[in-house]
Amino acid sequence: MSARGDSLGSWRWTRIVRTMFPLLVVLSVIVLWAGLTLEGARSLLEEFGILAIMVPTMVGTGGNLGATLSSRLSTRFHLGTTTLDPRDRVLWANVLAILALAASIFAALAVGAYLLGLVVGSTLSFPTLFLISMVSGMSVAVVAIVFSFAATYLSYRAGIDPDDTTIPIVTNVVDVFGMLIFIGVSTLVLT
């Protein structure tokens, strides 16, 4: 670490604030867009209330998947064990693990939504809920993977500690894309 404390991974609060404040302002605006998207889908969510129940899990899980991968990539950068080589089997194993986790979680979301729908009187069938959950969820997982790699790599290349930036970037961007994808898939399937 340099004498000034400006190296990658510096714990100086001024550096962290200087880096994170503008980023958090931009990300707040991006998340506001997700909220506006949700407001625009009010009629769909009122007609099919079970979808409104799925929204937080869909969006939150996508962000969590991205945060997990970002954390793993950031650790590998810090340890010097990755160069993001497409032939790196460990990178592919991480990607496949995220996709497998996404498939199991979003399948469970469909089952849970259907069972809850039986209790509250939802008119959506299990195949419909399963299709919406899996197409949306796996699409969100792919977005999370892409943004995890991009945010980690670009942060590292810019000399910014990826541990400071990747999780806020990935979770906020995935929130927006997750909302757009979920509403879009739901609209396509139900119309």
Rank of each mutant, 00 (worst) to 15 (best):
V170L: 10
V170H: 07
T171K: 00
D164L: 11
R157C: 08
I167C: 14
V185P: 13
R157I: 10
V170T: 09
D164Q: 14
P162F: 02
V176W: 12
D163K: 00
G184D: 00
G178L: 13
V173W: 11
I169W: 03
T165F: 01
G184H: 00
V173Y: 15
I169G: 08
V185Q: 09
L180G: 08
Y156P: 04
G178C: 09
I160Q: 05
S186T: 15
F177S: 06
L180Y: 03
Y156W: 07
I160M: 02
I160A: 05
V176M: 09
Y156A: 04
L180E: 07
I167P: 10
I160F: 00
N172K: 07
V176I: 13
G159M: 01
D163Q: 02
D161V: 04
A158F: 02
P168N: 06
I183T: 14
P162T: 00
R157E: 08
D161C: 06
I167H: 11
A158C: 01
G178I: 11
F177C: 10
T166K: 07
G184R: 00
I167L: 12
Y156S: 05
I183E: 03
G159F: 00
F182R: 06
I167K: 12
D164R: 12
F182H: 08
S186C: 11
G159H: 01
M179W: 15
T171D: 06
F177K: 08
D164K: 15
V174D: 03
I169A: 07
F177L: 11
D164I: 11
V185L: 08
V174P: 03
D161Y: 05
S186K: 01
P168F: 01
S186P: 12
A158T: 02
R157K: 07
A158I: 04
V170Q: 05
I181N: 12
